[in-house]
Design a binder for these strands. Sequence first.
DNA 1: CTCTTAATCAACCAAACAGTTGATCAACGT
DNA 2: ACGTTGATCAACTGTTTGGTTGATTAAGAG
Lengths: 128, 128
Amino acid sequence: MEHDALGSDTLDRAFMALADPVRRAIVARLSRGDATVNELAEPFAITKQAVSKHIQVLEHAGLVTRSRDAQRRPVHLDAAALERLTAWIDQYRLIAESRFRQLDELLGAGISHQEHENTTAKKKEELT
Amino acid sequence: MEHDALGSDTLDRAFMALADPVRRAIVARLSRGDATVNELAEPFAITKQAVSKHIQVLEHAGLVTRSRDAQRRPVHLDAAALERLTAWIDQYRLIAESRFRQLDELLGAGISHQEHENTTAKKKEELT
DNA sequence: CTCTTAATCAACCAAACAGTTGATCAACGT
DNA sequence: ACGTTGATCAACTGTTTGGTTGATTAAGAG
């Protein structure tokens, strides 16, 4: 059993899992409640085997878990895993934005945001 | 020119772009300031051609932009695009969490979180 | 004009992946 | 025991991707 928590592999699998419209739709559906493979298969014009594979991907990525209930194997969305992803993204987004703001102050912001991206591109290199 | 803003394709490309450790490292690097292809290529033991491809992927995903400065083509991280990703994830994460909390109240929370996931799995199906 | 640097394009190889069909397994209900 | 339903496993196909090498464009510097 792997206990990587938030290693490179885990992030790989998590983002890769979300990089598919079917799997994102599955996540969207699961946010409203657990569901079985067959329930998930109906809306999408693909076989349940394919859906089963998608769920395996999501499970291997740590985004969903499964439990046993008679023959049924309801799939459950793990909200904590989703939060770990947003945490990773925000980590760097906030750094970039803070850098952005520092630059704003340095230039005495009299420019619009769109032009800003272009004008500051070269400036930044000098003061890093 | 495509103006999809936040369509399925855009999300596909964005998540796929982040599903690679090299590209994530590039994002991490860019959060600290713009950089050229060669600058980005050095730390990773891969050729600059490969890095160029990675950047194309990131650019096509709308996560980075590029400008011209003589021969240099500094790559710039687009924080707004990152925020769109976290917004998408949070959208469903919050739904799942709110559902989670409703369940907590229904059961009169006397259980730990870990056991909770297992015990509630079956209950939920009934009340959806 | 020539040389160097930055970056891309083109062709190619190996690995990984999505989706299909067909067979198999597990847990029920009758 | 039998049939049914939920779900997985196995093998196959077409497509995509990551990475390499080699040639090529673009922009300066001498």
